[in-house]
């Protein structure tokens, strides 16, 4: 049985194809065009990778901010159940999921059966999200990918006090002008993000195992420091962590199709 899951986030669109419970292909793309078109493009790409065509897909589920704009999806689902489902499918012992994406932080507490018990999201500010890291990288003329390894070299992270994306960006620029070492600034930015993530996720009560997902889970420095801050060992998934929501959607698609 072939099913598909889509996750149309605010900055990236993801598709996952499952065949009999195995991931056979996936696709991630930045959202620049209309969501409907992006959804079709990533589906086509994922299908062609797996040597399949759209007729082979018996059921598909969409999730994410643009979930209602995937015309061919059989069902659209909210983010939290898909995230919970995907994390649990990848790491069955997961009880807490911390998802840090382009513009959102979501911390979920789930029980053994995978039911969402409580969740918390970032307040109305994109600080401590992927977009924030991108802004900092742009301001410092660095590549997003090199931030984590740069931060790891710092011995004295700079103090970033701003709690707001816009202010933090200007604070970073001020620090550069004051001649603070770039590495220490980058490390300071990471620390400030970790404090925010710890507060957002700590609110729901941390229960192990803790899994971090979303694009920011690729940043080892963030994962490591957050674990230290929360005093837990944070697990990451062995697929691209941005795909977890789409995987959850695909798993739900499989359940629906099997039940039908």
């Amino acid at each position: 049985m072939i099913v598909a899951g889509f996750d149309l986030g605010t900055l990236a669109a993801k598709a996952v194809i499952l065949r009999d419970g195995e991931i056979v292909s996936s696709e991630i793309r930045g959202i620049k065009a209309v969501p409907e078109k992006v959804a079709q493009d990533i589906l086509d790409k994922a299908l062609s990778q797996a040597g399949l065509s759209q007729e082979d897909v018996v059921y598909s589920v969409s999730t994410g901010w643009g979930r209602k704009r995937v015309p061919f999806a059989n069902l659209d689902m909210a983010d939290m159940p898909c995230l919970a489902k995907g994390a649990k499918w990848l790491i069955p012992s997961a009880r807490t999921v911390i998802d840090v994406g382009g513009q959102s932080i979501r911390a979920l507490s789930i029980n053994e059966a995978g039911k969402v018990l409580e969740y918390n999201t970032n307040d109305k500010c994109a600080a401590a999200t992927g977009r924030f890291l991108e802004l900092v990288a742009e301001a410092l003329e660095l590549k997003l990918e090199e931030l984590a390894s740069l931060a790891a070299q710092s011995k004295e992270p700079a103090k970033i006090s701003s709690q707001c994306c816009v202010f933090a960006e200007s604070e970073v620029v001020t620090l550069v002008n004051e001649g603070i070492n770039l590495i220490d600034i980058v490390a300071g930015v990471h620390d400030s993000i970790v404090r925010r993530l710890a507060a957002t996720s700590g609110t729901i009560g941390i229960v192990e195992d803790v899994v971090m997902t979303g694009g920011c889970a690729k940043n080892e420095r963030l994962v490591g420091s957050l674990g230290k801050q929360l005093k837990v060992d944070i697990k990451t998934v062995d697929v691209d962590p941005q795909l977890v929501g789409a995987i959850g959607a695909a798993v739900i698609a499989q359940e629906k199709a099997s039940a039908a």
Binding site: M77, A78, D79, M80, P81, A84, K115, V116, Y119
Partner: peptide, 9 residues
């Protein structure tokens, strides 16, 4: 609210 209701199962 829709999101929340969807997690109630």
């Amino acid at each position: 609210i829709e999101e929340f209701i969807s997690t109630l199962g």
